[in-house]
């Protein structure tokens, strides 16, 4: 079993009062709680802080923790010989056990030493995982592999942390920020307790072409000045393959051209739209002939896009 220094994690002295421990915890929770911080490492940091606080705030658990002695963080250690008898199960094996699971097993939902586990229904744990999927996977629906480290009781009622792999089907209709609940796919309940649920938070990988909002997609559509002025029919990529899009004559930069129902499918039927945002692309290198034609256009055109500057800003 690896040692963790709960006092150092909370930044308090070993002799700190319960109030000091609570204050230190709150300060750190404000900084690292996943609902508060956007820091990606915040969640793991908060787990560590929460684990330290849950042990040190409870006098019984704190006394049990103190009895483990002081070791270097991460160092392998064995509790003193009488520790198991004093605080838990004398048959307890400390191999492959995480320190947090050891203290989680000391009180709360787990029955104490000498009590029968037979009749106490314990609900299974809910798991919550962020599933990162591609836009193409969201469009078609997909099967994702999830790897979790989950606490599990063995036949003797001992708690172990075991790696578990899941395959979860994400049906069509996913988009950023959507949540999926897979009922009964969390931890197994014990003694008739309900099985936990698996919650998936969907996050889409950024796409090289499309930007996503809800079930709509946005695509930059570069067109030439003459396509914009004269109108054209151009090929536009969609998630279902290329389609032809008509560019009306006199199309301006920034104009949104809507391709109905070419966005992401919605979970309960229907589809979002695809919006092509027109960008006027200008050739950076022109040959002599092109230059001559542009020059001719410049000479004969009366078009002035800045006319409103002279009329005091009124377009």
């Amino acid at each position: 079993m690896k040692y963790k220094d709960y006092y150092a994690i909370l930044g308090v002295e070993r002799g700190a009062s319960t109030d000091e421990i609570k204050k230190a915890y709150r300060k750190l929770a404000h900084k690292y709680h996943p609902d508060v911080t956007k820091d990606k490492g915040g969640e793991d940091k908060f787990k560590e802080i929460g684990e330290a606080y849950n042990t040190l705030k409870d006098p019984e658990k704190r006394a049990a923790y103190d009895q483990l002695g002081t070791h270097q963080p991460g160092q392998d250690f064995q509790p003193p010989p009488d520790w198991g008898q004093q605080f838990g199960d004398s048959q307890f094996s400390f191999e492959d056990v995480d320190l947090s699971d050891l203290f989680a097993g000391l009180s709360g939902r787990r029955p104490g030493p000498g009590q029968s586990r037979a009749n106490i229904p314990i609900p299974g744990q809910d798991y919550e995982v962020t599933a990162h999927i591609s836009l193409e996977d969201a469009y078609q629906g997909t099967l994702v592999d999830l790897n979790l480290s989950v606490p599990e009781y063995d036949a003797q009622g001992r708690l172990h942390r075991v790696p578990q792999s899941f395959k979860a089907r994400i049906p069509k209709g996913a988009t950023n920020g959507q949540r999926l609940r897979l009922r009964g796919k969390g931890g197994k309940g014990i003694n008739g307790g309900r099985d936990g649920d698996l919650y998936l938070n969907i996050v889409l990988h950024p796409h090289s072409l499309y930007r996503v909002t809800e079930h709509d997609l946005y695509l930059d559509l570069p067109v030439t000045p003459w396509e914009a002025a004269l109108g054209a029919s151009v090929e536009v990529p969609t998630l279902a393959g290329e389609v032809r899009l008509k560019i009306p004559p006199g199309t301006a930069a920034g104009q949104k051209l809507r391709l109905a129902k070419r966005g992401l499918p919605k979970p309960h039927g229907g589809e979002g739209d695809l919006f092509a945002i027109v960008q006027i692309a200008v050739p950076t290198v022109v040959n002599e002939r092109e230059r001559a034609l542009f020059k001719e256009l410049a000479d004969i055109s009366t078009f002035n896009p800045r006319a409103h500057f002279k009329s005091g800003g009124a377009a």
Partner: peptide
Amino acid sequence: MTADDFESDTLWLDTH
């Protein structure tokens, strides 16, 4: 655990 286990009881947490 197979993928088919997840086919039923999958719910989007939305207004539907």
